[in-house]
Simulated scan of single mutants.
Amino acid sequence: MIFRKKFFKMGICLFFALLSSNAIAGWTTAKIASIVVWEGGDLIYVFPEGGVKNTPACDASGATYLSFSLKRPRAREYYAGLLAAYIAGKTVQFRGADACTDQSTSETLQYFQLD
Rank of each mutant, 00 (worst) to 15 (best):
K90H: 12
G26M: 06
K9Q: 07
M10N: 09
T64G: 09
A25F: 02
V52G: 04
Y111N: 15
T29S: 11
S69E: 07
I87A: 11
Y78N: 10
G26V: 08
L19H: 04
L18Q: 06
F94R: 04
Y45M: 01
D102R: 07
S104N: 12
D115T: 10
Y78C: 02
I87P: 06
Y111R: 15
A99W: 02
F15Y: 08
A99R: 12
R76M: 14
S69R: 06
K5L: 12
F94N: 08
K71L: 10
R4N: 10
F7G: 01
G96C: 11
L114Y: 12
A80N: 13
D115G: 09
Q113H: 13
K71C: 04
I12F: 06
G40A: 07
F47L: 02
V52L: 03
F112G: 10
T64Q: 13
Y78K: 05
V52T: 04
D115N: 14
Y45T: 03
K6N: 05
K53Y: 09
L18A: 11
S67L: 12
D115Y: 15
S104V: 13
T64M: 09
R74W: 00
W38H: 09
T64D: 14
T101C: 06
C58F: 08
P73R: 04
L70R: 09
K90G: 07
L109K: 06
F68N: 07
L83G: 00
I32K: 08
A85D: 14
S67D: 15
N54K: 06
A30D: 09
L82W: 10
V37C: 01
V52A: 01
A63K: 05
W38I: 02
N54Y: 08
T64S: 15
F16D: 02
K9G: 00
F8V: 08
F15V: 04
A88T: 06
S69K: 04
A88S: 13
A99N: 14
A63R: 03
G26K: 03
I87G: 00
A57E: 15
L70V: 05
L83H: 12
S20L: 15
L66H: 05
A33F: 07
F3E: 05
S21Y: 12
K9F: 15
L109I: 08
D42S: 13
G89S: 13
G89T: 13
Q103R: 11
G51T: 03
S106V: 15
S69M: 05
F3K: 06
C13K: 06
A97Q: 15
A85G: 12
A80P: 01
K6Q: 06
Q113G: 10
D98H: 14
E77Q: 12
T55C: 14
A63F: 05
F3N: 07
W27A: 11
T55I: 10
S104Y: 11
A63G: 05
I35T: 03
E39P: 02
K53I: 03
R76T: 11
K90P: 00
A57W: 09
F8N: 02
S106P: 00
R76D: 14
G41P: 03
L14D: 01
M10Y: 10
G11T: 02
K71N: 08
A25V: 08
F7C: 06
